[in-house]
Design a protein around this nucleic acid. Sequence first.
RNA 1: GCCCCCGUAGCUCAGUAGGAUAGAGCGGCGGAUUCCUAAUCCGCAGGCCACAGGUUCGAUCCCUGUCGGGGGUACCA
Length: 565
Amino acid sequence: MENFFRIIAELIAKEVQEDSETIQAGLQFSPKDKFGDIAFPCFPLAKRMKKSPALIAEELRDKLKPPPEISGIEVEGPYLNFRIDPYALISDVVFRVLKDRQEYGNSYQHHGETAVMDYSSPNIAKPFGIGHLRTTVVGNSLMRIYRSQGYNAIGINHLGDWGTQFGKLIYAYDNWGDQQKLSENPINELFDLYVRFHREAEDNPEIEEEAREWFKKLESGDEKAREYWRQFKELSIKEFDKIYNRLGIDFDYYTGESFYNDKMESVIETLKEKKLAKMSQDALIVDLEEYGMSPCILKKKDEASLYATRDLAAAIYRKETYDFDKLLYIVGVEQTLHFRQLFKVLELMGFKWAKDCHHVELGRIKFEGEEMSTRKGNIIFLEDVLDKSKKLALQIIEEKNPELENKDEVAEKVGIGAVVFAQFTSKRNKNSSFSWDEALNFDGNTGPYLQYTHARLCSLQRKYGQEISDSVDLTWLKQPQELSLSKLVGQFPLNIKLALRDNEPSVVANYLLQVAAEFNTYYQKVRIIVDDSDTSAARMALVNAVRYTIEKGLLLLGIKAPERM
RNA sequence: GCCCCCGUAGCUCAGUAGGAUAGAGCGGCGGAUUCCUAAUCCGCAGGCCACAGGUUCGAUCCCUGUCGGGGGUACCA
């Protein structure tokens, strides 16, 4: 499709003495079929040419001498609408996809650039709740989207493996812990201890003080504290990996907060040298008042470090180690101030790359209107959600397709697909409310809908049973739906670029729903494999183009596309 | 108090580098299966795009204000 945009842009540019890139940026896919395929709104030219947009459109229509692949130019008020020869359009798109297959939509635009992504980052010793689902799947999808556009993307799981909560946990385990329970079901045992600590602290606030003591010991290298900590961490990562495996996610690095313990002091030194750090209310801070922000606290009055200090050290370390062009923090919106402070301090330190750091904000997830809180113990385990979803998928398979082989494997893909896709149905910064009904819904705009459509497409190919020839004659595609479907497929690369621009995987998700809907309508109305072998071959070429598009799109979202379901 | 995000159909949400008659899904009602997977498709109902000004040829989108919801606001992350 990009060819056509370029051709049209050059055509217009020559006529109005404007550079063709500016014109091309003004071109758009026509929103409706009756407005042609590519539209050029003439408003931007009106001012400079001192004529009404409608008049400009008419003059342009008369002057332009389009090549044969542009089959028509129509004026609709201030719009100049270009119609592309259907055969040229369809073959441009379909042959492109059939050639690229799983690489369709990829580009080298950002080849040589590095993007570091900080995502998922759960807290050690806490269960993996649905609160962490967003960052995990959005981060994973952005990794894939960035890679598809040529980026060298580096995924970091910035584990919450340090901080005061470990003081609490060590206190709790030291007093009430059970080695047996811990090795049997580590996360549950640690979770119970954590909840119990907060319950007891309500009546006995002094144990908070003891917890702080334990954390100080941990920070200063106390052996007993470190051994507990090491054990908690190891067991936790093992549990998290189970979830990541199911989601098909891996990380390049698991460098958590503790990794930066020995890297904070030099940052603090630098801040002191630059006269940015100062004491206030017994804490070491960077004053940000003139930027309208509360201070960034580097050290508490008890000298213990804070996450801001660690994040500063981490950002600097990442720049030194990976020399990134972009550093993305895929983290909840409630940490916005923290990141604004962080980026501002980096800027004040004189790091020009501070502008390359971005907070990709995620909305909060609530459950039935309630805030989820690990402390209070009302948390939904992601593992439970995945299990329930899989079970439901299995049930539906038994009902609809009992002959299916490897039902369990398919149910896993579909069940997880439903849960993951649900995270992409609204923009990432919207707050959402978890509900079982929604998470376990397989009808309508859902992951299983896309997977089902994909399975249908695969089924057609199985039924057809022949390879698609390079020389297939696509002029047999004469149905209007075949043209609109091709047009839509041709918009895939644009949608990936939009998703990248806004760090918004939901763009791809919404686009895929459109493709699937368009295909299903087509499938309903038009029989694909027919007696006439030319027609069948042409239709199957289109079917395969749609199939690769959906498969690739799901891949970019981190969702598996089974061939049967 | 101050700062940030949000407000579109009964519900959940798309949509805007400002552009043509604002779109889906769910739920409701009514249809489609001797035929390539009905986890599908088709039709109907449902809208002062929170409200009021402003900028513009043109605003759901940009600016200002009001109302409503959420988050943050010095030693949690």
